[in-house]
């Protein structure tokens, strides 16, 4: 129960942060941080896959309604919700991590970093590819994907390092 309230709180905070502040960031005309997928990334390992995908879809859809891009974020975050478990268990074994949220503490720095990097990259890749659906400029597309991935990762590592590392 405490968990549900925590995630609801996280949802509201991430939503407001994303639509009111982060969406206005446009470093070098290219990079926008997408912090909101943090929620999907951090859902406990025991969360049913269907639920992760559902949360991904509705979170993306709400972001879309704010951005006037119906379907764009929804599709990208549905995709990343679908990919989350395969990605997570690519870096930790199923026995190692039956429960608990993915973090440096539970996964170790190396595995968590790899999980984070691949997750964020895949998301940015999907999102910008969907955006480019009707408008194709390959070098810019690639630059956007890479710079946004790096910026998002920087933010995420920053947040992760702020948390107290109680044992």
């Amino acid at each position: 129960m405490r968990n549900i309230i925590y995630y609801l709180f996280l949802f509201v905070v991430l939503l407001l942060l994303q639509v009111l502040i982060l969406n206005n960031i446009h470093l070098g005309g290219l990079a926008t941080p997408f912090l909101y997928i943090w929620l999907l990334l951090k859902l406990p390992a025991e969360t049913p896959r269907g639920l992760i995908i559902t949360i991904g879809f509705f979170f993306g859809l709400i972001i879309d309604m704010f951005c006037n891009t119906p379907g764009m974020h929804a599709l990208a975050s549905t995709f990343i919700g679908f990919m989350r478990d395969p990605l997570l268990f690519l870096f930790v074994s199923n026995e190692e991590m039956k429960t608990g949220t993915p973090s440096i503490r539970t996964m170790g720095l190396g595995a968590f970093s790899r999980y984070l990097i691949v997750f964020v990259f895949l998301y940015c890749f999907a999102l910008y590819l969907i955006e480019a659906f009707s408008f194709f400029d390959f070098p810019t597309l690639l630059l956007k994907i890479i710079s946004s991935t790096i910026l998002t990762l920087l933010l995420m590592f920053g947040i992760e390092s702020l948390k107290p590392s109680y044992k």
Partner: peptide, 30 residues
Amino acid sequence: PFFVFLLYGLISLFLLIRFNSYHQSVFFSS
């Protein structure tokens, strides 16, 4: 999970194609 993914994916695609022009819906926009 795959079918859940397929369902939401199709809904998103529908929204993407249906509202991706001048004609936006009042509900799905700001």
